[in-house]
Design a protein around this nucleic acid. Structure first.
Lengths: 151, 151
DNA sequence: CTGAAGAGCGTGCACGGAGCACGCTTATGG
DNA sequence: CCATAAGCGTGCTCCGTGCACGCTCTTCAG
């Protein structure tokens, strides 16, 4: 019987632990040495772009929960660092598409690898089946519970 | 065999999904109607205080990854709303201890309940054993991988 | 074909969170 | 008893964020 135990325990963990993680653990060591243009502010733009493919600033902003103007400014910095470029939308000449450069793709892949390495290091102490089940459950949970409004 | 699959998949989920969640989902509806003093900025202070008990602003700031000054300012707002009070440290007369008021305790409990309710609603579609296992695994994971430096 | 309305983008402006440095109070050790 | 250090709060500054405006281009009605 669900005495709401599972949800309560998750709530306890998600409160601000996850927040602290998002800041210090992930962004801190994740973006270290990858240039001053990449920090916890620009990271969501780069990561969101890598996740969903080339999009306009407005569309990307809607997807990652930021204003178009913010995305545009961060895109400026990332563009200056060569991680991203703007391509004119062939279907609409007033629109620009944000596209990762090859360097940008490499940087994203590098960050993903770092993060995965860190997580794997901790999961190494777990039974393999349990780790795999956790990864699958987390994915499902984030998809269902945390991303309710995908376009 | 761990082809580093679990860590990679977790990394993909943690990138910025969790960030979006921390902002929109949790803080948005979580603090709705609980007064203007409680928002995504002051929430970590209140939650961290509830988690670790009465502490000085410096200590709390260290624990939740914020500067003492920021904690102090947010504590001002929360104190003004009656959710928190400052008590002189009996052992050190220059130090103040941040302590939740009864109202503060109630508000934290209410937020926890809301969050738990939301998570339970999504977990309701899951097999009970799987949900329980996920909650336990998440707790263990946050403890081990995300909070490496507790005092 | 043409002109008006609307969409998409970038930027000036203002607000607020976050960190640093300073001054004040109090503890501590010589 | 005095000097040094620790703890706290606050002024100052920086920067991320959102809103509003102007511009360009698309779209559609007449």
């Amino acid at each position: 019987m669900s005495e709401s135990t599972a949800g309560e325990r998750i709530a306890e963990d998600f409160g601000d632990i996850v927040r602290r993680e998002s800041r210090a653990v992930v962004y801190g060591e994740l973006t270290a040495g990858l240039g001053p243009a990449l920090d916890e502010a620009t990271y969501p733009v780069l990561s969101g772009l890598a996740r969903g493919g080339p999009r306009s600033a407005a569309r990307l902003g809607h997807d990652i929960g930021l204003d178009r103007s913010v995305v545009s400014r961060h895109a400026d910095r990332l563009q200056g660092a060569g991680l991203l470029r703007r391509e004119p939308d062939p279907a609409d000449r007033r629109a620009s598409l944000l596209v990762l450069t090859e360097e940008g793709e490499r940087v994203v892949a590098r960050m993903r690898a770092r993060l995965a390495e860190r997580f794997d290091a901790y999961l190494a102490h777990w039974p393999a089946a349990e780790a795999e089940a956790f990864a699958r459950a987390l994915h499902r949970f984030t998809q269902e519970a945390l991303l309710p409004r995908e376009s």
